[in-house]
């Protein structure tokens, strides 16, 4: 194809797009890009949260930056609400998701996952002393979950006809309604909830029942890419293995989790 014609055409398109207020950082690229943008929820401590200066901190931010360094990528984080994360990935708002996205079959149909970089299990929690026998005791109870999470899907599928499942935008709202007495239980991944249980507000609350692992809940959390981004995915996979191998993962985990808490996803892919 005529190169100058292509450039001319592309630049005029750029102008149209710019006039529409759209951003078009570059024309197509065959190989994985050097500069990538990553989506984070920015509201899921200790994995990710937003600071007063607009920056992000947390386990996933540190880990993600370490992975980018290993993969030779220049990474920028952008914030996106969890429930709209996959649609925005498909709309090319960013290159991949690194925000506690559990890997399950339903999601794997619409995107590409890295190997899991962390694992966690789901569990019920609620006011101390309100112990129930699961699942019979759930009849007619209300349970708070995160909108669009695998936990929401799991409960609806298993006990949707008995339980009043309420979807929230973030974990604080679930905990606030638990404290207010609007819902009976919460159901979520254990690590973020343990932050709440360890806080003064969470003193009156405890875990209930077993830890659940189920294909619906996913097999660890991974970075999620668009279907055609195999090259970028492979780069990130190699980098995840590398940060596990050289001890970086352990070192970052020690910053955020108590000794003895095992978040390693290595057994899932080794």
């Amino acid at each position: 194809m005529n190169l100058s014609g292509l450039i001319g055409r592309a630049s005029s398109i750029c102008m149209i797009v710019a006039a529409l207020g759209a951003s078009l950082p570059g024309v197509s690229h065959a190989a994985a890009p050097e500069k990538v943008t990553i989506a984070t929820e920015g509201a899921f401590p200790p994995f990710n949260q937003t600071e007063a200066d607009g920056s992000f901190t947390g386990f996933e931010i540190d880990l993600g930056n370490a992975i980018c360094k290993h993969a030779g990528l220049e990474c920028t984080w952008v914030k996106q609400d969890f429930s709209g994360m996959i649609p925005a990935l498909q709309a090319k708002k960013y290159d991949f998701i690194f925000s506690y996205m559990s890997i399950n079959d339903e999601r794997a149909k619409v995107g590409l996952f890295s190997i899991p970089y962390i694992t966690d299990q789901f569990r019920f929690y609620g006011p101390k002393g309100s112990a129930v026998t699961l699942p019979a005791g759930l009849d007619g109870k209300s349970v708070g979950v995160l909108s669009g999470s695998t936990g929401e899907r799991f409960i609806k599928e298993k006990w949707g006809d008995k339980v009043d499942v309420r979807g929230y935008d973030n974990l604080d709202q679930v905990n606030a309604d638990l404290e207010a007495g609007r819902i009976d239980y919460g159901f979520n991944a254990q690590l973020p909830v343990s932050v709440f249980l360890a806080s003064p507000e969470g003193a009156g609350y405890a875990w209930f029942g077993p830890s659940y692992s189920d294909p619906l809940l996913g097999r660890g959390a991974g970075a999620m890419f668009r279907k055609d981004e195999t090259a970028l995915r492979d780069k990130v996979n190699d980098a995840i293995r590398a940060v596990y191998a050289d001890g970086t993962f352990k070192e970052i985990a020690a910053r955020y989790f108590k000794p003895g808490v095992d978040v390693s996803a290595e057994p899932l892919w080794k």
Partner: peptide, 19 residues
């Protein structure tokens, strides 16, 4: 975003077209 992507795809632009 989807409309713009579909519109620009025939011109060989398949990068990030995001409003």
């Amino acid at each position: 975003s989807f409309a713009l992507q579909a519109l620009l795809a025939p011109f060989g632009v398949d990068g990030f077209v995001a409003i």
